[in-house]
Simulated assay, not measured.
Amino acid sequence: MRKLLTAAIVAAGFATASDAAVLRLDGYTSTVQSVSIGSSPVANTPGTVGATGFNLTDTTGNMGSFVGWCLDIAHYLMGTGSSQNYTPTNDPFSNSFGLTDTARDRVQSVFDANYAGLDATNGDHAAAFQMALWEAAYEDDNTALSVSSGLFQASSTGSTSLANQYLFAAMNYAGGSQWNLSFLQVDGDENRGRYTGQNLVTVSPVPIPAAGLLLVTGLFGLGAITRRRRKA
């Protein structure tokens, strides 16, 4: 119950972040796994990339510390401890491979169907989730999602099958949005060098509606009253 209330408060604050951020890479959520790219519609995609989540801190203080994920496979973040300028965008991404409306919806579904149960500290899980995000972002709009076929193809020991499980769950997800997506575009145009930053996505929990908070608070209070009565 406390975690639920805390998540709602954190999400409300996260959504008020300003229009500029200086993001510092503090490290990775797990050991970086090597992923082989078999096919990609993104220009200059390397044949082998690393995959995991990023531990980031907004040194301007607005977004605090959070986990980000790559949506820019043709570029790399700079080294741990380095900082780069980012701008939140509602039209990802003007400086690289742009997301269609369908791709954006698929990225949303990958998070909604899987993120609550993801262990980002597990290398296989983190790499599989990152592969699923790339597939959702880069696959043809009319093609079923799988990292094993289609315009975008990738493989990694221990992660390929799990990535496809995440994608299957996303395609069959029928619930509402569980996460607010924030797209972060690194400053610079599409001709920037390979090691000059990746475009990212991060999420915060969808806040509980006011009526829902009242219900949660009421249930919490009812439970406390019941416990007191039992003690009496």
Results as ranks from 00 to 15, higher is better:
Arg2Thr: 15
Leu151His: 10
Arg106Glu: 06
Tyr86Gln: 10
Leu4Glu: 06
Gly27Phe: 11
Leu133Ala: 06
Tyr138Ile: 09
Thr102Leu: 06
Arg194Gly: 00
Asp26Thr: 04
Asn180Cys: 07
Arg2Ser: 14
Pro41Gln: 02
Gln130Leu: 02
Ala8Tyr: 05
Gly193Ala: 01
Gly223Ser: 13
Ser36Val: 15
Arg229Val: 07
Glu139Ala: 07
Gly13Asp: 06
Ala128Lys: 04
Leu5Ala: 13
Ser39Ala: 14
Thr196Met: 13
Ile37Arg: 15
Asn95Glu: 09
Ser146Arg: 00
Thr6Ser: 15
Thr87Arg: 15
Phe168Asn: 14
Thr16Cys: 14
Thr16His: 12
Leu133Glu: 05
Glu139Arg: 01
Ala7Lys: 05
Asp124Leu: 06
Phe129Gly: 08
Leu213Gln: 15
Ser156Arg: 01
Pro46Ile: 01
Tyr138Trp: 15
Thr226Tyr: 12
Lys231Arg: 09
Ala43His: 11
Val107Arg: 06
Ala128Tyr: 08
Ser30Gln: 10
Thr157Trp: 01
Arg24Gly: 12
Thr52Gln: 09
Phe54Ser: 11
Ser159Cys: 12
Leu145Ile: 11
Phe93Pro: 01
Ala224Tyr: 14
Phe183Trp: 15
Thr143Val: 06
Thr59Leu: 05
Gln185Leu: 01
Gln165Asn: 10
Asn142Tyr: 07
Ile37Asn: 13
Phe129Ala: 05
Val147Asp: 02
Phe152Trp: 02
Thr202Arg: 07
Thr102Trp: 07
Val107Gln: 13
Arg230Lys: 09
Gly13Lys: 08
Ser65Ala: 03
Ser109Pro: 07
Ala126Val: 00
Gly47Arg: 06
Ala74Leu: 03
Met1Leu: 13
Ala232Asn: 13
Gly150Phe: 03
Pro92Met: 03
Asn180Gly: 09
Pro209Gly: 03
Leu222Gln: 12
Thr45Pro: 03
Asn164Pro: 09
Asn180Phe: 04
Thr196Asp: 14
Ser148Leu: 06
Asp124Cys: 02
Ala136Ser: 04
Phe168Gly: 13
Arg192Leu: 09
Ala43Gly: 10
Ala12Leu: 12
Thr48His: 04
Ser159His: 14
Thr226Trp: 10
Thr6Pro: 08
Gly221Gln: 07
Val186Gly: 07
